[in-house]
């Protein structure tokens, strides 16, 4: 700003209006106006206007700092800001929908994987019962053969197993040997071997199956019980609500056979 840029805000006053202060410098006039305070019309009027100015200033500063930028913003700016916010919320909404879908998908697939795993486990247990690799329990019978004369041949015991299987036995254990699909009986009376392991009398069959089917299968006329009694052995059948078959045999991996199903 040039010092000679003289554009007086107030029009120059007639000479008469300032004769008595004409000799004073600006600084002296300022000091005289400030002190001592004088109640003149000019002072009061200026005080009133300055009061209004201070009021407006304070209000404006206050409202600007109160509500941030929005309060002082113009209409078109507000419209633009609103548009931007709308866009932004729309984008966020889209993203939320997308992420929700993704989450549902992941939950579904993890549920399916969990379900498949459960089914596999269940199937493994069922097959384990058949293969004799896991213990089993359930209703069934206990079939005890006393053999005081050591007259019971292995084939009689094999007949017993066949009869039990035919009657729906699901898990069988003789003494402490688990009987499975490839079990075999060998030896002779008094020295019976099951799967190569020697068992001695009394022979104790623990069988899981439906007791109402298993018991008659052994007791029918001309059946196992009568045959054994002919050999001077005593055979007793006891039903039970809870039979535990806990003899195990190791799982064997077949050397040649492979599953042909996928």
């Amino acid at each position: 700003m040039s010092s000679e840029d003289f554009t007086p805000h107030e029009p120059r006053q007639p000479e008469a209006a300032r004769t008595e202060t004409a000799e004073m410098t600006g600084r002296q006039r300022l000091a005289a106006g400030l002190w001592p305070p004088r109640v003149t019309r000019a002072q009061l009027v200026v005080a009133l206007l300055l009061f209004v100015l201070g009021l407006g200033l304070a209000i404006q500063v206050r409202s600007t700092s109160d509500d941030g930028a929005l309060r002082g913003a113009r209409q078109e700016d507000l419209v633009r800001i609103l548009d931007e916010l709308d866009d932004r919320s729309q984008r966020l909404e889209d993203e939320k929908t997308r992420l929700d879908a993704q989450r549902r998908e992941l939950e579904n697939s993890s549920n399916q994987a969990e379900e498949a795993r459960k089914q596999t486990e269940e199937r493994e247990r069922q097959l384990g019962v058949l293969a004799g690799t896991v213990a089993a329990e359930g209703p069934g019978i206990t079939f005890t053969v006393e053999d005081p004369l050591t007259a019971v041949e292995p084939d009689k015991l094999l007949d017993t197993i066949q009869e039990l299987r035919a009657a729906g036995a699901e898990a069988i254990q003789v003494n402490d040997v688990r009987v499975v699909a490839d079990s075999y009986f060998s030896g002779r009376a008094g020295a019976v071997e099951v799967d190569g392991r020697k068992i001695t009398a009394p022979y104790r069959f623990q069988v899981i199956g439906k007791p109402q089917d298993l018991e008659p299968a052994l007791n029918i006329p001309g059946g196992i019980v009568q045959t054994l009694e002919k050999e001077q052995a005593t055979a007793t059948v006891t039903r039970s609500e809870k039979i535990v078959v806990d003899a195990l045999r190791p799982a064997e991996r077949p050397d040649y056979a492979r599953s042909s199903s996928q």
């Binding site: 106006g33 400030l34 002190w35 001592p36 305070p37 004088r38 109640v39 002072q43 009061l44 200026v46 005080a47 009133l48 206007l49 300055l50 009061f51 209004v52 100015l53 201070g54 009021l55 407006g56 200033l57 304070a58 209000i59 206050r62």
Partner: peptide, 16 residues
């Protein structure tokens, strides 16, 4: 002086 007081009072009132 009174004019300056007027300004100060205006600001204070506006803030209060």
């Amino acid at each position: 002086m009174i004019a300056v007081l007027g300004l100060v009072v205006g600001v204070v009132v506006g803030l209060l």
